[in-house]
């Protein structure tokens, strides 16, 4: 038996909206420590992982580890039936073929329950080691969103370089070129509005903007985002979900022939 109650149900809706376009059919691994997912997009160049900790839920029960095969598009449709202040409860039996979602209004005077059919999904799981990064940048998630959106109107790919000058995003296309450089800041009113750059070695990598733009769909989940760049390795873009967990995106770099 699995049962999880989330007072801030809108977080679940935002999480599914942040990942549903990259991965459609995914396995959620449920254990007594929480809910985990790892899934690659169809082309296998991008990976999405999330963790929702059991202690981030108002109530969490998982008697034995379960894998729930979920069509995220269908789950998103169901979550559209929930109100933005609803409390969401998820339930599944150990051998069941449905995930029950219950939406309770704030005043608990309206209750919706929906059964989502589960599926059997074969998925490839990758072992991602803890890496030493060449450069780690933390910035407001709205800033990241704006950079990748603005550069998408210039080109399809972006060069991201970290040097002691800062972190530079450059795009080139038919209409011209654009560079956006972020420098470290410390003057913002709130700590999360600052840009922090920790560089161990200069690094330059090229990525498809289409994916980086897609990662920005997680902006409503967190006020900050961390971008980890490592020489010759995928970029990691992390959004921490306060008191609940994280969603992380990985994207393979483009390589010169």
């Amino acid at each position: 038996m699995f049962e999880a109650r989330l007072i801030q149900g809108s977080l679940l809706k935002k999480l599914v909206d942040a990942i549903k376009e990259l991965c459609t059919e995914v396995n959620w691994d449920i254990s007594n420590s929480g809910i985990n997912m790892q899934s690659m997009d169809g082309s296998h160049v991008c990976l999405v992982a999330f963790n929702l900790r059991a202690d981030g839920f108002d109530h969490f029960r998982c008697d034995r580890p379960l894998t729930l095969g979920i069509n995220l598009g269908n789950l998103a449709k169901i979550l559209k039936c929930s109100g933005s202040n609803d409390i969401i409860t998820m339930k599944a039996d150990d051998n069941g073929d449905t995930l029950t979602l219950m939406f309770e209004s704030e005043k608990q005077d309206r209750i919706t329950d929906v059964d989502l059919k589960l599926m059997s999904i074969e998925s490839e799981h990758l072992g991602i080691p803890d890496q030493d990064y060449s450069a780690e940048t933390s910035m407001p998630s709205s800033e990241y969103q704006r950079i990748v959106r603005d550069l998408s109107s210039i080109g399809d790919t972006v060069n991201i370089s970290a040097t002691k000058e800062g972190i530079k995003f450059s795009a080139m296309g038919d209409i011209g070129t654009a560079n956006i450089t972020l420098r470290q800041t410390s003057s913002a009113d709130k700590e999360e509005e600052n840009v922090k750059i920790e560089m161990k070695e200069p690094v330059l990598l090229t990525f498809a903007l289409r994916y980086l733009n897609n990662f920005a769909k997680a902006t409503p989940l967190s006020s900050t985002v961390q971008v980890f760049l490592t020489k010759d390795l995928p970029v990691q873009v992390n959004y921490n979900i306060q008191d609940l967990g994280y969603v992380k995106y990985y994207l393979a770099p483009k390589i010169e022939e």
């Binding site: 090229t206 390795l233 995928p234 990985y250 770099p253 483009k254 010169e256």
Partner: peptide, 13 residues
């Protein structure tokens, strides 16, 4: 520009 799949960077757990 070509792009390797993630399996080229990360192995099986």
């Amino acid at each position: 520009m070509p792009q390797k799949t993630l399996s080229a960077f990360y192995g099986k757990p």
